[in-house]
Design a protein around this nucleic acid. Structure first.
Lengths: 156, 156
DNA sequence: CTGAAGGTGAAATATGGATTTCATACTGAC
DNA sequence: GTCAGTATGAAATCCATATTTCACCTTCAG
């Protein structure tokens, strides 16, 4: 299972286009990738059914909405047994200020990406929210000074 | 400039819905947020013009496309003067395996999010790509063992 | 109280796009 | 070489949706 799916040139171009602009019509898409609208539509349908092509989402501007502070927070657990990990992960799923969480190799156990309003707000999120969890031993926050690059698309 | 924009309850609900599903029709959207299609459409238009509502993108499944390895790579620069930073940032913009790059506080200067095919491929990206840049003094990679949480939406 | 400004919902209108059909072209197995 | 299986493009069909209009409220300044 989870085999990598084989794509031809046109499939790849379809994915490239749609990763950047989900609003393209089949007509326009077909022209860009050099195919017909019908064929293109069938390919998109197949890619969706294969699970390669996921949901379309609308991006918003965090700064304009008062969510100007990005923070990466590394977490070390007191113990890494299954129960505490599982409990922690369920807990993180509920924290809406945490937009991403990765289990990572190295000195730390988890890497959290948090979007806060400002420093004061981050204090709330961290102290009253996340660090409340008692499986956590230790944490370290890195504040984002500037977003140099940010894209939701992956290379093909 | 860059003032935070004030939204009412309905605007916020519109943003919540659209952040998760960009394909909603105005009709459906209106029902969900408890408004009329016309009014809803005017709000969406205004939110777009204000820049709050950005582009719609289509997410893909990296694993199914053979991009199963996420890595976070911290970078320390030899010097942090304007020229080397600027050159490095331009350089990163061109690296398509780097999906995100942040300038951060703390011991390191930059945090890179890289999407690679596998370890062997990451060696290529890092050694033959990124570390080639001669403004870099030092780097440290953390490999993602598992994605616990990943969302493109921010809380409102 | 009055009138201007701005937002609202229902309904009319316009427009564009998704989806299917069909005849044809390609591919690989035998 | 032939046949089954599969993908293709053009055109026809079927839909739904965006967008506008208009009469009506609400708010608030004077």
């Amino acid at each position: 299972m989870n085999t990598v799916i084989q794509l031809d040139r046109i499939d790849r171009e379809i994915l490239k286009e749609l990763q950047v602009d989900a609003e393209l019509s089949n007509q326009e898409l077909a022209e860009r990738v050099g195919s017909s609208a019908a064929s293109c539509w069938r390919r998109v349908k197949a890619l969706r059914e294969a699970g390669v092509l996921g949901p379309a989402v609308r991006l918003v501007d965090p700064a304009l909405l008062g969510r100007g502070l990005d923070v990466f927070c590394e977490i070390r657990m007191k113990s890494q047994n299954r129960e505490s990990r599982s409990a922690f992960e369920d807990f993180i799923a509920l924290q809406e200020d945490v937009v991403a969480c990765y289990s990572i190799s190295g000195d730390w156990d988890y890497l959290l990406h948090i979007v806060a309003r400002d420093m004061k707000d981050y204090e709330r999120v961290l102290m009253r929210g996340i660090l409340n969890h008692d499986a956590i031993a230790n944490s370290s926050s890195k504040f984002v000074l500037r977003r140099i690059k940010f894209q939701t698309s992956i290379p093909l």
